[in-house]
Design a protein around this nucleic acid. Structure first.
Lengths: 230, 230
DNA sequence: TGGTATTATTGTATATTTTACAATATATTC
DNA sequence: GAATATATTGTAAAATATACAATAATACCA
């Protein structure tokens, strides 16, 4: 393949990941402390330039893999950002992805381009370099839209979870509150979680039942039939 | 701005537009007959390589403007495609957009890269070069999702339209059929079309009332409140 | 062991929305 | 004015969403 067959202007292309996690304190985003110019020593979205021989989606997966050690993570492309001056060093298009990870599985593996990585509550994101704040907005919005239509919330929860945790998750993402009874009726009627028969332990109050996500049941349902309007 | 500040691999970036139109025979897509290699003399999506000084969205708009002469068209980014071998001449990322145009406004302006352009019914799209068939699938899917949540269908209709035309539009895009009475109740209850008091003329049967889209009313409603589930 | 603190769990009545279904109205043409 | 063609409209039943608070299960402590 002769790259010169395309005699036009070329640009660098990068991927940037918005990595969401969730714990009892709410929805969080994983940011890295940049160890390279530009914007060295700033908190930013984890991302990297794409190399010649990587597909787009593989590149996004690799960034996440390098950073978290996690594989087979739920990822989805959000949007591509291509303003002329979005990068101070030249023309760089960036393709943004969001990823949902189980925060308990995450182990810090700062990468070549990251000195450090940390979770930031979604409501306390600092000013980010490039157009990363805009990217984050897109990601939040897309997550909101998506979770109302598809059962992707489980990607953020441990294998076993309580209905209260699930409700808090939906409430954090959708930035609203639900009636406990109505939430449970709705989510149970959708028939993609199963009572494991297990219960919480080591809690100082009535232990909650533990549920698990039932992917098989869902896979029979067309995506347009699922909605979370409460 | 010194392009050499980014010493990494660079690639060409293009935009490809999926241009939708609608008339009484249904939903259509505008394809061009390629006048340049590769795939010269094939029907394909209209697109072009991005130049140094154009923002991403401006590039997509320019492709459409060159091709149709139309300005201020509803466009939305769909997805970016970046498989290593998607272009035979080298690494080319393409950012796909869809556009909704009023087919009656369209005038043929074949471009430097197009010898000819023509509307193809959505059900009769030929084999397309590159990954253009895949792009088209994404576009159809996104249009389907979008029209259920936002009143964008009007972008495909003339200023004045009948409820029957509107119903046919929704049916074409969603690939389903609605009950006449229920469709009308639903769409009228959403309160973004207005009866103009005018009627169809030159028809050989009872003339239908003409409606128009009422953008102002809609603009007060948050996008998540609108849904077209019938 | 019984009381307290804490969170989990559950049901029902009402309002709203969706669905299913067919007769009548208005124009043109002959 | 009869025939043809499409436009327009209502109602009852079913399903879904909403509003709302009392009881249950555990740990802890006195």
């Amino acid at each position: 393949m002769d790259p010169n067959l395309i005699p036009f202007f070329k640009a660098a292309v990068s991927v940037d990941n918005v990595v969401f996690g969730f714990d009892q304190s709410g929805l969080k985003v994983l940011l890295i402390y940049r160890g390279a110019d530009p914007y060295r020593n700033c908190w930013a979205l984890p991302g990297d330039l794409i190399s010649l021989d990587s597909d787009l989606s593989s590149s996004a997966e690799k960034v996440l893999q390098d950073l978290t050690g996690l594989d087979k993570v739920y990822m989805e492309q959000i949007h591509t950002f291509g303003k002329v001056d979005r990068h101070p060093f030249g023309r760089v298009f960036t393709v943004a992805y969001f990823a949902l990870i189980k925060i308990e599985d995450y182990n810090i593996h700062p990468s070549s381009w990251a000195e450090e990585a940390a979770w930031f509550p979604i409501s306390e994101i600092p000013d980010l370099p490039f157009d990363h704040n805009e990217i984050l907005l897109f990601a939040k919005d897309q997550l909101k839209t998506k979770i109302r239509r598809q059962p992707i919330g489980f990607e953020l929860l441990p294998k076993y979870f309580t209905l209260t945790e699930l409700q808090k998750l939906y409430e954090s993402i959708l930035e609203t509150e639900f009636d406990v009874r109505n939430f449970r009726k709705k989510i149970l009627s959708m028939d993609f979680i199963t009572d494991t028969g297990l219960k919480q332990s080591c809690v100082t109050h009535r232990p909650a039942k533990l549920f698990k996500y039932n992917a098989k049941k869902y896979s029979k349902i067309s995506s347009s039939d699922f909605a979370f309007d409460l």
